[in-house]
């Protein structure tokens, strides 16, 4: 059993009737489940398939296709640095390296402190304010190495409980 939260279940029940064909709701359901659980488990694939009356492979083939869907958990915060040309021209590779250095982590994994996952992603469609970075759902613009250090500091500060430092 998935034991999804009532809020997620409600969103799922609301979105399915938006479509004349149930199968169309598979991406929205994957988003909702990933937003709650952090990744898409085998169990989630089976549950969504049953919910939409399709085969599990029809869910699985999407999870393996779409870059934003994950099969594994990530760090508490998700740092996505744009890799594509306009950002790279303005120093996106330096920005990405700085985030990795700040959290002592490679690309895609979870940092040793469990705090972040740093990813290099393709175009985030904010090329005029390059280099750009998404931290969780929020876009940060003109993030050079110095700004990356400041953002890393904010993330670390927010992670520590009051008085713990």
């Amino acid at each position: 059993m998935m034991n999804l939260s009532p809020e997620t279940l409600q969103k799922i029940e609301q979105v399915i009737p938006h479509y004349p064909v149930k199968r169309s709701a598979v991406l929205p359901l994957l988003h909702f489940v990933q937003e709650e659980r952090g990744f898409i488990s085998d169990e989630a694939i089976e549950w969504i398939a049953a919910k939409l009356e399709i085969q599990p492979v029809n869910v699985y083939e999407l999870v393996t296709f779409y870059p934003m869907l994950r099969r594994k958990p990530i760090g508490r915060r998700h740092i996505r640095v744009c890799r594509t040309l306009s950002c790279a021209l303005m120093g996106g590779y330096r920005t990405c390296a700085e985030f990795q250095r700040q959290f002592n982590t490679g690309l895609g994994g979870i940092s040793p402190d469990g705090e972040v996952t740093v990813e290099f992603v393709e175009c985030l469609a904010s090329c005029g304010t390059a280099p750009v970075v998404m931290i969780d759902d929020e876009l940060h613009e003109k993030v050079d190495a110095a700004r990356a250090r400041a953002l890393a500091q904010e993330i670390r500060a927010a992670a520590r409980p009051e008085g713990a430092r």
Binding site: H18, Y19, S24, L27, P28, L30, H31, L62, F65, Y66, P67, M68, L69, V121, E122, C123
Partner: peptide, 12 residues
Amino acid sequence: CEIYVHRGAGAY
């Protein structure tokens, strides 16, 4: 006419 928003998942 109804309008619904459908989110993609990162594929160009």
